[in-house]
């Protein structure tokens, strides 16, 4: 049977893609960010860790969905998804190759489990989906696995609650486990961490909130899932609400997880950036060394 073996979280800001495209990923500004991701890349390419399929939870940034259609939870069921032109030409990255059998199976299972999904076929994917792939896989000619895009509305209010996202993750886990084929499935939650991109309060960063969020996500996600939207908005900025998507990833991993790797960095353009590598406790491999890396402003060095 298929199994959710791993959860990864990642920032998806477009500036990371731009850094790769302009060859600045190793400069003084971006170098520490890409260095912080390197252990995840090394891990995933090594030792049988490559997934067959990633369920990639992200938000569309007014790309595939404009103001005409605003689906709360949707799933891409097509054979492939091309990178979108977001105003500066499409990102020069490979097409995202889907897994229609598993995607349709998940869609059907979720609906039977009371999550009334929107199903998409013809859909372009934006930086929310492709930047995490670039950060974890680098710049290959083809992505090394199949990807099921899973967009969540966190743009037009109200987005789904944290509790709903956490429960959705649990339903994705059950859906994957009822798929007959033997597949290694990852669920990735992207976006975050604290950031605000608009208004006089733009530039907000809340390190204490972010580090506490990471700790709770690992150890007490159920309590974390009850945090109301207003607290995300006040504490982590208007765009920090993207963090509800991390709860979908966490819900898909079951009760207990082991944190193999945590990376946190301030700043990446307007944002605080977080990248985690988690596995269900019963099948978890050894943590990476070092297990925690913090970099950037006002952060203690890695343990």
């Amino acid at each position: 049977m298929a199994r959710v073996t791993t959860g990864i979280t990642s920032s998806h800001i477009p500036a990371l893609g731009a850094a790769l495209q302009t060859g600045t990923s190793q400069n003084e500004y971006w170098g520490p960010v890409f260095k912080g991701y390197q252990p995840i890349m090394d891990w995933i390419y090594g030792d049988d860790n490559m997934p067959d399929v990633i369920v990639l939870v992200y938000n569309d940034h007014a790309t595939a969905f404009d103001m005409n259609v605003i689906p709360t939870f949707s799933i891409g069921c097509a054979e492939k998804f091309e990178p979108a032109d977001e105003g500066w030409g499409p990102r020069p990255v490979p097409d995202v190759i889907g897994h229609p059998d598993l995607a349709w199976h998940i869609a059907q299972s979720l609906i039977l489990d009371d999550f009334d999904m929107c199903i998409f076929n013809d859909m372009k994917v934006d930086h929310g989906c492709t930047v995490p792939l670039s950060m974890i896989f680098g710049e290959p000619d083809e992505w090394p696995c199949k990807v099921i895009p899973f967009p969540v509305n966190v743009v037009t209010y109200p987005p789904p609650s944290g509790a709903r996202c956490f429960a959705l993750g649990d339903s994705i886990k059950a859906a994957v486990e009822s798929f007959p084929e033997d597949l290694n499935v990852h669920v990735w939650g992207t976006g975050g961490m604290s950031h605000q991109l608009q208004g006089p309060r733009a530039g907000l960063i809340n390190k204490e909130f972010d580090l506490n969020f990471i700790d709770k996500l690992i150890n007490d996600p159920e309590t974390l899932s009850k945090m109301p939207h207003i607290e995300y908005l006040r504490e982590s900025g208007s765009e920090g609400i993207e963090l509800v998507m991390w709860l979908i990833m966490r819900g898909a991993l079951g009760d207990k997880v082991k944190d193999l790797y945590t990376f946190y960095h301030i700043p990446a353009s307007n944002t605080a950036l977080g990248a985690l590598l988690l596995q269900p406790e019963d099948i978890a491999k050894e943590p990476l060394d070092p297990r925690v890396v913090h970099s950037g402003h006002s952060l203690e060095p890695a343990e």
Binding site: L204, A272, H297
Partner: peptide
């Protein structure tokens, strides 16, 4: 931003 961003103190 390089100096750690805008503090949430007083703007919540």
């Amino acid at each position: 931003m390089i100096a750690g961003g805008r503090s949430p103190e007083g703007v919540r």
